[in-house]
């Protein structure tokens, strides 16, 4: 095993107690959303694919909170529910999309991998591995022509580094000096294949070298580390209009998708090791030590979130299916 979770959690990244509590709330909301979503899948409310973000929360929380959504944009891959929540999409509308309802973020036409919210500057999940990388380069190129130094953030997995479009996009982004941040969420597996078995170099950050793009690795379990990195990197990008590459080291708790029980390719020992550095637990421990919240308050918060989400699930369940006439709408303008 080349990539080990790194031990302690760094400072507080200059976050106030209120901001820290907010981030804990966000992470809990993602974790509980995915739990409920998977239950809804098992209950037959969701069909097709379901890729859980549980375990990876600190990556999205760090990189998305530091964005300025009045000007910046996000391009995502299919593991997109957590990012949607962080960008402020209404969980009820996300559930409605997962249930294939008319009130869903994509009118029920897209499903789990195809959430979109132009209002929240979220330009989509994408079902094709690496599909968003060149799109994000184009988004960055468009943003470069706008005032205010906006940037684009693009998320994808370790598996996407194996696609040609990753290397072509890095070259283009550097050649044309495009302000797009490429965030590789390295959760150690591309479906059932470990990084060492799909990548010629297991330090993925090394594979982004050679394009004249700044790169770094960040501890994706540590919300302070992702927050600090995001703030520093965005400042650099706004100043220089340059791309940037980040490898965030983290772990997905569930299988690749809901049908994958992750039984035959990873060990319980490895899972336990990552659970022992759970991003939510790490932040919670900090909040307790700093006497910002008590364990009981955190548990109350979690239960309050669950209750809120459950109410949204119930409302989304009541929403109607799209009108049959929707079938042929939206194919062309």
């Amino acid at each position: 095993m080349s990539v080990q979770p790194q031990p302690p959690i760094s400072g507080a990244a200059g976050l106030t107690p209120r901001q820290l509590t907010h981030r804990l709330r966000q992470m809990l909301a993602i974790r509980e959303f995915e739990r409920l979503g998977e239950q809804c899948f098992r209950d037959g409310l969701i069909r097709g694919y379901y890729h859980s973000y549980a375990g990876q929360e600190a990556v999205g929380v760090g990189f998305l909170n530091a964005l300025d959504l009045s000007r910046d944009y996000v391009v995502d891959h299919y593991r997109d529910h957590g990012h949607c929540l962080l960008l402020g999409l209404d969980p009820e509308q996300i559930f409605a999309e997962l249930f294939g309802r008319a009130t869903g973020v994509s009118k029920g036409k897209g499903g789990s991998m195809h959430m979109y919210s132009p209002e929240r500057h979220f330009l989509g999940g994408d079902g094709i591995v690496g599909g968003g990388l060149s799109v994000a380069c184009g988004v960055g190129l468009a943003l470069k022509r706008r005032a205010n130094d906006p940037i684009c953030v693009c998320f994808f997995g370790d598996g996407a580094l194996d696609t040609g479009t990753f290397h072509e996009s890095m070259n283009l982004a550097s050649l044309w000096s495009v302000p797009t941040l490429y965030v590789c969420i390295n959760n150690l597996y591309s479906m059932g294949t470990r990084v060492e078995d799909h990548s010629s170099l297991s330090q993925l950050v090394d594979r982004a070298q050679g394009y004249g793009v700044k790169t770094e690795q960040v501890d994706g379990q540590d919300v302070f580390a992702t927050t600090a990195a995001a703030e520093r990197i965005y400042q650099y990008m706004r100043q220089t209009k340059r791309p940037y590459f980040v490898e965030a080291l983290t772990y997905r708790y569930q299988g690749h998708g809901i049908h994958d029980k992750a039984l035959n390719y990873r060990t319980e020992q490895e899972e336990a090791q990552w659970h022992s550095r759970d991003p939510i637990q790490l932040l919670a421990a900090h909040l307790i030590t700093e006497k910002i919240l008590s364990a009981q308050q955190i548990e109350d918060l979690r239960q309050q979130i669950v209750a809120e989400l459950q109410a949204k699930v119930e409302r989304a369940k009541q929403a109607p299916q799209p009108d049959d006439a929707e079938l042929k709408q939206d194919v062309l303008a």
Binding site: G48, G100, G110, E326, L327
Partner: peptide, 10 residues
């Protein structure tokens, strides 16, 4: 002649 939609009825 549409992309495969998600909603069960569609």
């Amino acid at each position: 002649e549409v992309p495969l939609p998600y909603a069960a009825n569609l």
